[in-house]
């Protein structure tokens, strides 16, 4: 992928888009890379789609927002329509398989369009609350911006205080990361 790698993550409020974006860029920063993350906010976000713009590279990042992303992940039907503009022929476009009736809104020209059943796996196999962590796993697999171990470290850093109280949560979150990565590998294979 390009350097820096540009990622647009979009979803509804409460889907945890901004928090996983924060963990992801922190993982990259901790691994010695340059990272920049900016959320949309305020009136722009209230009642609208929450978008996280992330860039990760080897040198200082230029402008904080971008026109086209290397990876777009859309987690709701509104997010699909909102993020259409960030995709071009170099974009890998991921959306959750549970989103229906958006076929006309998907970027036909994208390098690759993948529907991944993240929500289903979260509900059936793990826990609905780790949906966004599955998405993070998918994002790092699709972009290779950081390795799995680095990602786990960043999750530990952010959520470690919860894991102390309930060590099972650690297992659950790490599993979610791996499942997310696996979903992308399965599609790419």
């Amino acid at each position: 992928m390009e350097n820096p790698v540009k990622i647009a993550l979009a979803g509804e409020g409460g889907q945890g888009v901004q928090s996983v974006a924060g963990i992801m860029v922190e993982a990259a920063n901790d691994s010695g890379k340059e990272a920049l993350y900016i959320p949309n906010f305020g009136v722009e976000q209230r009642g609208g789609v929450s978008v996280a713009f992330c860039q990760i590279g080897d040198e200082k990042i230029g402008s904080p927002k971008f026109k086209k992303a290397d990876l777009v992940i859309a987690l709701s039907d509104r997010a699909v329509r909102r993020t259409r503009q960030y995709a071009d022929q170099n974009t890998v476009y991921l959306y959750d398989a549970s989103i229906k009736g958006v076929e006309d809104g998907l970027p036909q020209e994208a390098k690759k369009v993948m529907a991944i059943p993240a929500l289903e796996i979260a509900k059936k196999e793990l826990h609905p609350r780790v949906f966004n962590v599955i998405i993070m796993g998918a994002a790092i697999e699709a972009t290779k911006i950081v390795g799995m171990e680095q990602a786990k470290k960043a999750v530990e850093k952010r959520l470690g205080y919860k894991f102390v109280q309930n060590p099972k949560l650690r297992e659950l979150n790490f599993k979610a990361l791996e499942e997310g990565a696996e979903l992308v590998r399965a599609q790419e294979a």
């Binding site: 860029v25 920049l36 904080p64």
Partner: peptide, 9 residues
């Protein structure tokens, strides 16, 4: 606003 809200090192 960008500088206010974005994160970087």
């Amino acid at each position: 606003g960008y500088q206010a809200k974005m994160r970087e090192s």
